[in-house]
């Protein structure tokens, strides 16, 4: 999967001195040391994560009793997958959600650029504010957002009304409900993105800006021609993490939309579908299939991003 791309010791935005190739080759093939370093970690990973995944792969070929007791059914569950129109629908919903959350990336790039202006007062305070949503407990904050999005009485529609816009019933209209959840996801992710991007920004040598300024570049030109290109490694990392996390959409959907809201049928995410099949429908076998589909889809999305990074990510 990501093997070939990941092993490239790509450069960094922190001006680390590149190691001399000759030395690197001379470096020991490390003997038994690696075992000491990764051994304990890998044992735990194998026991608590890898084994369950392999079990899941096996369960995808079985039919489960609700409390255990499996019957081998071959590819039956996998055949169901191809006739199930819920899966493409859930995939689409998840992708829409991810696209909304990814809107947070350019916003975060812009805000980080502002935050990292030299001699900006109060930047630590701003950073703390932007980090706060990341601390929010989904269940508690979901109530507040539900009140804000309320179609009749919410502050968001009250705000829109100031401009003569009649806002929709956000949480009960199929298209809008997903947008609402996406907005909350975006709200929660911006702070995290800003911290990573700010850190990346700090790695850009100030001389580059000075040189650009000497050439008469405006702030806008500097942003597009210095900041953005040099920030691409950080942007790339943020994108990868956001996409992986976005595919796990479940808690937020559950907390904001909930199970008894009729619109849930149109807003199910892939993980919601997995949860529904495994724990509500009690069809663990098919739930396992969906879990593996999620793994495959995220792996492909991540691999594509690693492949495309060569085209647009500038490593120093």
């Amino acid at each position: 999967m990501t093997v070939t791309t990941l092993k490239r010791p790509a450069g960094t935005s922190v001006p680390a001195a590149p190691a001399a190739p000759a030395r690197r080759r001379r470096r020991l093939s490390s003997g038994w040391w690696p075992l000491l370093f990764v051994g304990p970690f890998l044992v735990g990973i194998a026991v608590f994560y890898l084994f369950p995944i392999l079990q899941t792969a096996y369960y995808s070929l079985t039919s489960w009793g609700p409390f255990g007791g499996v019957t081998f059914v071959g590819l039956e569950n996998w055949a169901t997958l191809f006739t199930d129109d819920e899966v493409p629908k859930a995939l689409l919903n998840t992708v829409v959600y991810i696209l909304i959350v990814l809107l947070g990336v350019p916003i975060a790039v812009w805000l980080s650029a502002l935050l990292n202006r030299p001699r900006l007062r109060g930047s630590m305070t701003y950073r703390t504010m932007f980090f706060l949503p990341y601390l929010a407990m989904p269940v508690a904050i979901a109530l507040v957002w539900r009140l804000m999005f309320n179609g009749d009485f919410g502050v968001i529609n009250a705000f829109l009304r100031l401009f003569g816009i009649q806002g929709p019933y956000w949480l009960s209209t199929p298209g809008y409900a997903l947008v609402a959840v996406g907005v909350v996801g975006l709200w929660m992710s911006v702070g995290f993105n800003i911290i990573i991007l700010s850190a990346g920004l700090r790695g850009i040598p100030p001389e580059l800006y000075e040189a650009a300024a000497l050439d008469g570049a405006s702030r806008r030109t500097q942003f597009w021609h210095v900041t953005v290109p040099l920030l691409t490694p950080s942007i790339f990392f943020v994108l990868v993490i956001n996409v992986i996390a976005g595919f796990q959409l479940f808690d937020l959907l559950y907390a904001i939309i909930g199970r008894s809201n009729p619109v849930i049928d149109d807003t199910k995410s892939l993980v919601y579908l997995f949860y529904d099949e495994s724990f509500i429908q009690n069809d663990r076998g098919y739930g396992a299939v969906i879990a593996l589909v999620i793994l495959a889809v995220v792996a492909i999305a991540t691999a594509i991003q690693f492949r495309l990074q060569r085209r647009w990510v500038n490593y120093v």
Binding site: R146, N150, G151, D152, Y169, S172, T173
Partner: peptide, 8 residues
């Protein structure tokens, strides 16, 4: 309406 009853 249904929308109103699901949000409030």
């Amino acid at each position: 309406t249904v929308e109103q009853l699901s949000e409030t």
